[in-house]
């Protein structure tokens, strides 16, 4: 079946078998490997992407269902001139160790900050509860999300 969707602003399409997940479509057909396969059952969050503004586990979404929708992956956050504030704060605060959970964490955080740029610590924890980190860097990750939120709201206020 042909799946046509918008990924990071570009119209893309791929011919996939019906059981193909959105994660496989992104990684194997579109060569976007930022979303990772960690558990393949929706527990670890390394495959998180944003579909029509909402974060989802791309390992649990069949590619066919993403047809006609707008998907944002980690590859679509930076521009050629500028890192996304989350990428900046995650790097600066050391919120990335082995880095495998990073793309999913950042995407979940983006989905939160896009709606709520000044979250409480609890709201950040809640928004990241579906993203596991085994290097145990949660403290730094939470700091990085709060900091990025501050940068984003400052930028919004000035513009």
């Amino acid at each position: 079946m042909i799946v046509k969707l918008k990924v990071n602003g570009e119209i893309r399409s791929a011919d996939v078998s019906p059981e193909t997940t959105l994660l496989k479509l992104l990684r194997e057909h579109l060569n976007l490997t930022g979303a990772k396969l960690g558990c393949d059952v929706g527990d670890c969050g390394t495959c998180t992407v944003i579909v029509d503004g909402k974060s989802v586990n791309s390992c649990l979404m069949l590619a066919g269902r993403a047809s006609g929708r707008e998907v944002t992956t980690i590859e679509g956050l930076a521009s050629s001139e500028q890192l996304h504030p989350l990428q900046e704060t995650f790097e600066e605060l050391g919120a990335l160790q082995c880095g495998f959970c990073g793309p999913g964490m950042i995407i979940s955080a983006k989905a939160l900050l896009d709606k709520n740029p000044e979250p409480t610590v609890f709201e950040v924890r809640d928004a990241l509860s579906g993203n596991l980190c085994r290097c145990t860097g949660y403290t730094k990750i939470i700091e990085a999300v709060l900091d990025a939120g501050r940068i984003m709201s400052t930028a919004e206020a000035k513009s």
């Binding site: 990071n8 590859e75 956050l77 521009s79 050629s80 930028a155």
Partner: peptide, 16 residues
């Protein structure tokens, strides 16, 4: 905090 431009949706070319 330095104000930054929140990136707009446009295709990125890697490496940056």
């Amino acid at each position: 905090l330095k104000p930054v431009v929140v990136p707009v949706d446009k295709p990125v070319v890697y490496p940056l």
